[in-house]
Design a protein around this nucleic acid. Structure first.
Length: 786
DNA sequence: TCAGCTCACACTTTTGAATAGC
DNA sequence: AGCTATTCAAAAGTGTGAGCTG
């Protein structure tokens, strides 16, 4: 909750956003309300505190972010699952991931604030089926669903905060409900996905910028299911997840117990007196069962887990009390508040936040305890894990898949319900591209770059609607201003004419940040950003979308930051996700918003015109914008999938850059159909503008939920290696991922957020009816927003 | 017929309010 | 009166298995 207070724009509840918009639109004269509060807070601070945030260093200068490192703390657990073929249950109501993502960050500037995001993108364009004891690609993937990003509840927090504890994303939930209004990450069942983590510098309360680092851990790749297919996975889950304790051999809900209950039930119906022997609660039943983990360990070993650490004692798959977690935790120390906040213009806020964060530490740790601690540096060898990976190369037809470690179903496999599955390389993501080979050879994670660039300079105060490209003006420093157009969410500066410049800039920056995430389309483009871009970023992989990252980075230096590309990139073509310019959506309502919010209606604001406070025009564009088609439109199957190279962490870089560079063109190419890019145009996946009303979920009242999710259509580039960009050639493959109506931006406040009360003074309507036991959130799910 | 999905169930952990003790 | 520790109940997270759907 605190986090919301800190970064209203990021985590604020709907009412807050609404207030902001409302004020802008309804009472322009009073617009300063929000900004004023911020300004006042800032002014109240000592001059030193008001010192401008550190300016990004020159490209040549090494900055802290260049050394940003992310480690998957429970890597060994992930590898265990990966070796068998990780499956993640998805349900309509949302299901947490297990194992969860527990991370350690280092190399951050302790005094700067960062936002951590999690998104999950398709690993390929295939749909899978569990056959013959392994996963086989059985066809094209379904239309891509709206991308949603889970914002870590602690966000924004200082580098010292993130580095001082284990970062857990266990609150993130996965759902297969395409109409989900809870803000969960929507995925298709029986598809393979790759989680990605992004560290975005948040320069101050309202500004995101300064750099972004993206990380991918190949071992966290998984296939979504509605019911577990592989018994080995079930065993692992039961033995590792405390909540499944009851299903362990010695648990009260074990098969043995269930059978006993079953038997008991039957007799009860006929012989009510005979209950002695069947009582599940019989003392004998409750006696500690012999350790059954032996079986698990054996099985795992049979599954080529030899390289893996032995499984935890099966009897207690995971024992928090015994977990070495604490050992791995970085000693928690007080945050360097003074230092941390000097850079912040909202120092007071920062302080409050810091306090909240500290308070939260314990909770975070506790949550983290759920999973066994087996920290692995991103640099650690992941070779084994990869080698053992059970995921076949998705894109490849089962029969022809030379990369799939899964043997073609043979008699043995069939006969054996739980055959030992040969290790399978992670196909796609990293290896599909020929270029990837180089990177694959590297033992280091593919991590990399940070191409996210947020505008350092505050957006112009111009009240007039700015062209999407307007913001794209070359920045003097390495940071590029993200064109509003880039992100559907990106508002134009004009929206807040009356707003304080600082506030505006902050807001815009924030939006820009959001935009960064929304550049998924570029990956689809598959074309190097370089195309037409002057950006240095085009260097090799940088220019390519996500998939390319893997390919492009032959020698991905762990966590190296690449210079930001020049933002002046007139790449209309590179903007598959470019927002439609038409204002069809202008009449939207915000179903998800509280009534008063809906009244705010961005509706009447022409998409292209100056918008209400947040430059919703872009949002509206995005809403109409086709889902990033390109990434899915390219069948990966046509591309050979080299064995996945082990790496604990892959750096994702260029995708964002590309989007950034392409931003300038957005204005012109806002509408998908208008995109010059042949690929895009040819792709049937372009999404026609959709009225919010057309989407049921948008009309539903949005519940308040714990997760803090930033959700919108093409946030990030897909991992699909088959993307054209990565491909040497190719005709646009059939749109495996048909256009999917984009969803709106959704920000949810995590109930667990440590941030809260301190900033309430910033919002006058704080109490206003939107409060929810689980926390407030911002739901911009209405298409109108985009 | 069957693969895949939904739901209710029993069990467990987590969380927060209520209470007791100091 | 205020604080801390303990207890308890509700909520939420698990996998299972029956039933439903296309």
């Amino acid at each position: 909750m605190l986090s919301m207070e800190m970064y209203p724009s990021l985590t604020m509840g709907p009412q807050r956003i609404g207030d902001c918009f409302y004020r802008d639109r309804q009472a322009p004269a009073h617009m300063p309300l929000f900004p004023t509060a911020c300004d006042m807070a800032a002014k109240a601070l000592p001059p030193r505190v008001l010192a401008p945030p550190p300016v990004p260093n020159e490209p040549a200068t090494k900055t802290p972010k260049d050394e940003v490192r992310m480690e998957l703390e429970n890597a060994s657990l992930w590898k265990q699952f990966s070796s068998v073929g990780t499956e993640m249950i998805i349900t309509k109501k949302g299901r947490r991931m297990f194992p969860g993502l527990r991370l350690k960050l280092s190399g951050l500037n302790p005094s700067l604030r960062y936002i951590l995001l999690l998104d999950i993108i398709p690993a390929d364009n295939s749909r899978y089926r569990f056959q013959g004891g392994g996963w086989q690609a059985v066809g094209g993937a379904e239309a891509r669903l709206p991308d949603r990003v889970f914002i870590h509840p602690d966000s924004p927090a200082t580098g010292s905060h993130w580095q001082g504890r284990t970062i857990s994303f266990h609150y993130a939930k996965l759902t297969n409900n395409t109409l989900d209004t809870q803000g969960h990450i929507i995925l298709h069942s029986l598809h393979r996905y790759q989680p990605r983590l992004h560290v975005i510098e948040a320069r101050d309360m309202l500004r995101w910028g300064g750099g972004q680092h993206s990380f991918v851990f190949p071992e966290t790749q998984f296939i979504t299911v509605t019911a577990y297919q592989n018994n080995k996975i079930t065993e692992l889950k039961i033995n590792s997840n405390p909540f499944a304790k009851g299903f362990r051999e010695d648990g009260m809900n074990s098969k043995k117990q269930r059978d006993a209950r079953q038997k008991r039930k039957i007799p009860d119906l006929t012989e009510t007196l005979d209950i002695v022997n069947c009582d599940p609660c019989d003392s004998t039943e409750l006696l500690p069962q012999p350790i059954t983990t032996t079986t698990t360990s054996t099985d795992l070993q049979a599954l080529a887990l030899a390289s893996m650490p032995p499984l935890p004692d099966p009897s207690c798959g995971f024992r928090p009390e015994e977990a070495s977690y604490q050992d791995t935790l970085v000693p928690q120390h007080a945050l360097d508040l003074g230092h941390a906040f000097i850079a912040s213009q909202m120092s007071d806020i920062s302080i409050s936040m810091a306090g909240g964060m500290q308070e939260r530490v314990g909770g975070e740790v506790a949550n983290s305890m759920i999973e066994r601690s087996d920290t692995t540096a991103y640099t650690s060898n992941f070779t084994d894990a990869q080698a053992n990976s059970c995921f076949p190369s998705a894109p490849l037809p089962p029969s022809s898949s030379s990369f799939s470690s899964l043997p073609t179903p043979d008699s043995s496999d069939i006969s054996d319900p739980q055959p030992s599955i040969p290790p399978i390389d992670y196909p796609t993501i990293l290896s599909s591209s020929p270029t990837l080979s180089s990177s694959s050879s590297s033992t280091t994670p593919l991590l990399q770059q940070t191409s996210f660039t947020f505008p350092t300079p505050p957006p112009s105060n111009s009240s007039s609607p700015q062209p999407l490209l307007s913001s794209s003006s070359p920045s003097a420093n390495t940071y590029h201003t993200i064109p509003e157009a880039i992100s559907p969410h990106t508002p134009t500066d004009a929206s807040f004419p009356a707003l304080d410049s600082t506030f505006q800039s902050g807001l815009q920056d924030q939006i820009s940040a959001d935009s960064l995430l929304t550049q998924p389309g570029q990956p689809m483009q598959g074309e190097p950003v370089a195309s037409g871009n002057d950006a240095p970023s085009d260097q090799s992989s940088a220019a390519f979308i996500y998939p390319n990252n893997f390919h492009a980075n032959p020698n991905p230096a762990p966590i190296t930051t690449q210079p930001l590309p020049n933002k002046n990139h007139p790449l209309a073509s590179s903007l598959p996700y470019s927002l439609p310019t038409h204002g069809a959506p202008s009449s939207f309502a915000f179903p998800s918003f509280p009534p008063h919010m809906q009244n705010l209606s961005f509706a009447n604001v022409p998409p292209s015109s100056a918008h209400p406070a947040l430059h919703l025009q872009n949002l509206s564009h995005q809403s109409q914008a086709p889902f990033p088609p390109s990434s899915f439109a390219h069948p990966s199957s046509s591309i050979p999938h080299p064995p996945f190279q082990p790496s604990s962490c892959l750096a994702v870089s260029s995708s964002f850059q590309q989007s950034v560079t392409s931003a300038p063109s957005m204005t012109q190419t806002a509408h998908p159909q208008n995109l010059p890019n042949p690929r895009t145009s040819s792709c049937p996946s372009s999404y026609p503008p959709v009225e919010m009303g057309a989407i049921p979920q948008f009309n539903q009242a949005s519940p308040y939920r714990p997760e803090m999710v930033l959700h919108h259509p093409s946030l990030l580039p897909p991992l699909d290696p088959s993307l054209p960009s990565s491909l040497p050639s190719s005709t646009p493959p059939p749109a495996l991922y048909p256009a999917f109506p984009s969803y709106s931006l959704r920000l949810c406040q995590d109930p667990h957020s440590p941030l809260s009360i301190p900033f309430r003074h910033l919002y006058r309507q704080h109490q206003h009816g939107h409060a929810h036991p689980q926390g407030s959130y911002l739901d911009m799910s209405t298409r109108a927003v985009f």
